[in-house]
């Protein structure tokens, strides 16, 4: 969707990333670059490590080994069991403030209304003044079509509405990068479209996005690149059409065939 200069330094640079839970090796040496303005879809069957990989990017999950850089700054570096980066907690918090995240289960704060949810990050993390924070929050709520719900409590919203609020909440931190963790998987089918529309608008504005998704239609039509994870490794990485319409290996082929029909459902939303 956006034209990238392939020589520009990637916004996200991941090298040799490994993650184990006990004896289970979930990630087995992942290399991945995401350039500025790029939309990368992470796909794969459940258990392939895609959500773990996404959660490692902002260190919600602590990797076992490897290197992560965001915007050229080292966020994580463990080599041969030794923490080379030794970043203080405050540096990790600052980095997370530059990366927005949207969760499968929305994770809105149930004790705050919609507007307070959207304002919470800048208020607490950046200590931003209420006036500018509120103005931007209301703008963002309007953008995701939730302006008239600003005073509602989250438990009185539908799943799709919650997810749109959570996107506005992440955007209000003015992030350089947005991480999406299966943002439509917890939604009733008829609510998926409104969330995808919001994400498509965001992609068109040039937001850098790393999206874990089962919506292969979205991956095909919106993503600049599709990365297929299989058993903790990158099994394919390339333009959506090459990866999804002409799968380069059998495991990917098997995976894609199960999802082909959703692409047809997506097209009307793009236009």
């Amino acid at each position: 969707m956006t034209v990238n200069d392939p020589k520009s330094a990637p916004l996200v640079r991941i090298r040799g990333l490994e993650k184990s839970f006990g004896n289970t090796r979930v990630l087995r040496g992942i290399d991945l670059d995401v350039r500025k303005g790029e939309v990368v879809a992470l796909v794969g069957s459940s258990g392939s490590g895609k959500t773990t990989l996404l959660r490692c990017v902002n260190l919600l999950e602590h990797p076992t080994a490897g290197r992560i850089e965001i915007g050229g700054e080292r966020l994580f570096h463990v080599e041969a069991g030794r923490d080379v980066a030794r970043l203080p907690a405050a540096a990790i918090h600052r980095m997370r403030a530059r990366v927005g995240m949207v969760f499968q289960q929305f994770n809105l704060f149930p004790h705050m209304n919609v507007l307070a949810n959207v304002m919470e990050g800048p208020r607490t993390v950046k200590r931003e003044a209420a006036a500018s924070n509120r103005a931007r929050a209301l703008d963002l709520l309007a953008k995701v079509g939730m302006a008239e719900f600003a005073d509602r409590m989250p438990d009185r919203l539908s799943g799709g509405q919650k997810q749109r609020v959570s996107i506005a909440r992440a955007l209000n931190m003015q992030p350089e990068l947005m991480l999406f963790d299966e943002p439509t998987s917890a939604l009733d089918p008829e609510l998926v479209g409104e969330v995808l529309k919001t994400m498509i608008a965001l992609a068109k504005e040039g937001m850098t996005m790393l999206v874990v998704t089962h919506e292969l239609g979205f991956a095909l039509e919106v993503a600049d690149r599709v990365v297929f994870l299989d058993q903790g490794t990158v099994a394919a990485d390339g333009p959506p059409r090459d990866i999804l319409l002409d799968p380069p290996n059998d495991r990917l082929k098997a995976f894609v065939n199960r999802f082909h029909e959703t692409a047809d459902l997506m097209r009307p939303l793009i236009g």
């Binding site: 919600l60 995240m101 704060f109 004790h111 993390v125 959570s166 991480l179």
Partner: peptide, 27 residues
Amino acid sequence: IDRGQFDAARAMGMSDGQAMRRIILPQ
């Protein structure tokens, strides 16, 4: 309190103390 609440707080850059005070304890 659901782990996701902590995830959401930390993902926006809150320290553990801020997450406790603003998100976890009030609930």
